[in-house]
Simulated scan of single mutants.
Amino acid sequence: MLGKTAGGLYWMFRYLERAENIARLVEAGFRIALTRSNDAEAEWKSVIVTSASQDTYEAHHEGYDSSQVINFLLREAHNPSSVLSIIKAARDNARLTRTALTTEVWYAVNDTWMMFSELLKNPVPETEVPRVLSVIRQQAALVRGALHGTMLRNDIYDFCSLGIAIERMDSTARIIDVKYYSLLPSPSFVGSRLDNVQWETVLRSVSAHRSFRWAVEDDFTAPAIANFLILDSRMPRSLNFCASQIAANLGLLAEEYQMRKPSNDLAEELLARLKGRDIGSIFDEGLHEFVETVIDDTARLAWQIEQDYRFNG
């Protein structure tokens, strides 16, 4: 496969995953700002920080008013990470790689772009935020369903799946890091009711609140939730699950092309940091330090994948 085609597939599904993750972040911020936070601006600022768009936001806005943040993240053109900008980029990549996609996947991506262009044409009033976020999540699931239901399990599918897993791993790690360490006002709150509320918010940010209740007997405590989001192999947005998926897809590509790449080694090193660990050892190491290392290693791995498969040439 041409590197440009592989890169287009990979980035198309990275962008689609990113759009859904932004919608989840906005939903979590909207929920806690309305119901639990005494300082709604701090919650909205944490959403901007987690989305890695603080500099762009502050270049165009003052303060962290809810309507400003919501519209910045969902529809503003000068934000390259807004949902509307990201979906346009995903559709552009789908056009570039159209001959590698089934009709169902192409129509799902194109329909999503047209729907979002209309849905986000005007600023989103707060009364409409839940409905708009629901549509974004549903459309992301529709495209992913078309991928899983109609595409051959070959190198095309592996590059698409890699994009999803890399983006999801980065997003989960950033949510854990920013939510826990940026929102707690003081180390003295660790273990308090406020601490547990922040961890519950982390679960909602990755739509894992109900899954946690099904899978884990413990209450909303830092060790139980951190273990679920970092190490639980059943949870499709956990770091362990994503690292396993990345290593598996790269392994299949190595078999397909009969050539092992440096990215295979990096993926296995990243997975080894998570396999067989217990959450106590991660807390002893320092959760912030551990998660920062995962974020850096994921970025390094993503860069190596682009080099190995020549996405830019």
Results as ranks from 00 to 15, higher is better:
254 A>K: 00
106 W>K: 00
95 R>Y: 10
47 V>M: 11
176 I>V: 11
194 L>W: 06
214 W>G: 03
227 N>V: 11
4 K>Q: 13
117 S>M: 14
248 A>M: 01
111 D>Q: 09
195 D>M: 03
263 S>Y: 00
105 V>S: 09
30 F>C: 00
291 V>I: 14
178 V>L: 06
239 L>G: 00
176 I>D: 05
234 R>L: 06
201 T>V: 08
226 A>S: 13
35 T>H: 13
7 G>F: 00
192 S>K: 00
228 F>I: 08
25 L>D: 02
193 R>W: 15
260 R>Y: 07
30 F>T: 02
185 P>L: 05
2 L>F: 09
93 N>Q: 07
28 A>E: 07
128 E>G: 06
63 G>N: 08
60 H>C: 01
32 I>V: 15
147 L>R: 06
156 I>R: 14
128 E>Y: 07
56 T>C: 10
226 A>I: 09
256 E>T: 14
145 G>W: 15
231 L>T: 05
304 Q>V: 09
240 N>Y: 11
87 I>W: 13
265 D>F: 13
175 I>R: 04
72 F>I: 07
295 I>R: 04
269 E>Y: 13
27 E>D: 10
26 V>A: 08
221 T>D: 04
86 I>Q: 04
72 F>V: 01
146 A>S: 08
127 T>F: 13
51 S>A: 15
282 I>E: 04
49 V>R: 08
275 K>V: 15
218 D>F: 15
131 R>Y: 08
115 M>Q: 13
281 S>H: 04
266 L>N: 03
241 F>H: 03
279 I>C: 02
230 I>W: 05
230 I>N: 01
21 N>V: 03
155 D>V: 11
78 H>P: 01
196 N>D: 10
172 T>Y: 02
271 L>E: 02
78 H>K: 13
6 A>Y: 04
129 V>E: 02
131 R>H: 12
3 G>K: 01
37 S>G: 14
304 Q>L: 08
25 L>I: 07
191 G>M: 07
202 V>C: 07
32 I>K: 05
